[in-house]
Nucleic acid binder design. Structure first.
Length: 264
DNA sequence: ATGGTGGGTAGCCCA
């Protein structure tokens, strides 16, 4: 069995205590973090080592973005894709060398895309779509069992948002984003593990804005975080959960962790 | 219709 977690932590240095709590309470074998907001030089390796997570692949950036894959079983970094070609740290790929050997684990942080869902008015929105298009071309070439996890910054299904109609023009749930993400899905035949085990139309959110007095009030969440697997790997997924309670931890991230277990 | 909050870093960007 192998247990893999993914979490947009929104500053790993500020929230290292929450990360430690997750590792102690859930004991995943591998943790994929997004938005670490730091470079490797100032990454809190000691905290991870002390808990037995001695294998690291850190693709960091000062102040913004950044991803890290941390493991207690051996991993080997194999790629750092820059799907925007602008130097932002938004991906790291590893292969798993211990139990679960043969699996490739891709950790990605898709650009949020700004506020206006229009390429002309808002270049960031175009960059988000272009990032996904390049990721799609990459996905066509995958020839090994792969799990891609992270903050995709898109909630594709109606039941992935608190109000479908109200969010149709809100970046993260616009039809053009959903279609672009669908093309990525079709390029490899990805299986959406979260939705295999928490089937639509059941409510499923992984993010709640900071801009609310009480995040529970109205439950205005969105499913921005995902774990998608190659078909043969998806067949071996035995459990999946969303740690909603982490949104209530002291000084929380606006995202909560996702965890999937595989019988490997 | 609007602005609301949070993190990082150094006078704003990004989410």
């Amino acid at each position: 069995m192998i247990k893999i977690a993914s979490w947009n932590i929104n500053s790993v240095r500020l929230r290292i205590g929450l990360v430690e709590r997750l590792l102690m309470e859930e004991a995943p074998d591998i943790l994929c973090l997004q938005e670490i907001k730091t470079v490797a030089e100032t990454f809190p390796f000691e905290a991870f080592n002390a808990l037995g997570y001695t294998h690291h692949a850190v693709h960091g950036q000062k102040g913004y973005h950044g991803v890290a894959t941390i493991s207690r079983i051996p991993i080997r970094e194999i790629s750092r894709h820059d799907w925007q070609d602008n130097g932002e740290a938004r991906h790291v790929g590893v292969e798993v060398l211990g139990p679960g050997q043969g699996m490739v684990l891709e950790n990605v942080y898709v650009p949020a895309g700004g506020d206006i869902p229009d390429r002309e008015e808002n270049p960031k929105f175009g960059q988000k779509l272009d990032f996904l298009a390049r990721m799609t071309r990459w996905a066509e070439t995958i020839d090994r069992p792969t799990l891609i996890v992270g903050d995709f910054n898109i909630a594709p299904l109606e039941s992935d948002v608190w109000n479908h109609k109200q969010l149709l023009k809100v970046v993260s749930h616009t039809p053009i984003e959903v279609e672009t993400l669908q093309r990525f899905k079709d390029a490899h035949g990805w299986v959406d593990i979260g939705r295999e085990l928490i089937r639509a139309p059941e409510r499923y959110y992984s993010w709640w804005s900071y801009r609310a007095k009480d995040w529970k009030d109205g439950d205005r969440g969105r499913r921005l975080d995902h774990m998608w697997a190659s078909p043969e790997l998806a067949n071996q997924a035995t459990g999946h959960k969303v740690l909603e309670q982490a949104r209530d931890w002291e000084q929380p991230s606006d995202h909560v962790p996702l965890i999937t277990e595989f019988a490997l």
